[in-house]
């Protein structure tokens, strides 16, 4: 079980939990504003961009190659950027906070 905190760009805080699936799916199931997931989670659209809270980045890990390349195009890219459809939910990421970029 992992509990994830989303903070949207209009400062709404949403806490959600799940055992499996991707963080993007969790965000959509919980109506998190700014996570559109247009491509359905195949790392093709970059509409699921989040900044991982600095202290949590090690838990979540760095993006893979394709994801990192996709992120480069993003306006608000920073060193804690991830496309959250590429983050799998597991105990390892329990308690992390994600700032929704859009």
């Amino acid at each position: 079980m992992a509990k994830i905190t989303f903070i949207t760009s209009d400062n709404e805080t949403i806490v959600a939990e799940a055992n499996s699936g991707s963080v993007m799916e969790l965000a959509k199931d919980n109506n998190v504003n700014g996570i559109d997931g247009d491509c359905g989670g195949v790392c093709s659209c970059a509409t699921c961009h989040v900044h991982v809270a600095a202290g949590d980045f090690d838990k979540v890990g760095a993006p893979g190659e394709i994801e990192a390349d996709m992120l480069e195009l993003e306006d608000n890219y920073n060193e804690h950027s991830r496309l959250c459809c590429q983050i799998d939910i597991s105990d390892a990421i329990d308690g992390v906070t994600l700032h929704v970029v859009n």
């Binding site: 790392c43 190659e65 390349d69 996709m70 480069e72 195009l73």
Partner: peptide, 12 residues
């Protein structure tokens, strides 16, 4: 093809 970088640069 398997090359998001090319896709992103092309877009730019």
């Amino acid at each position: 093809v398997n090359n998001a970088k090319a896709y992103v640069i092309g877009t730019k």
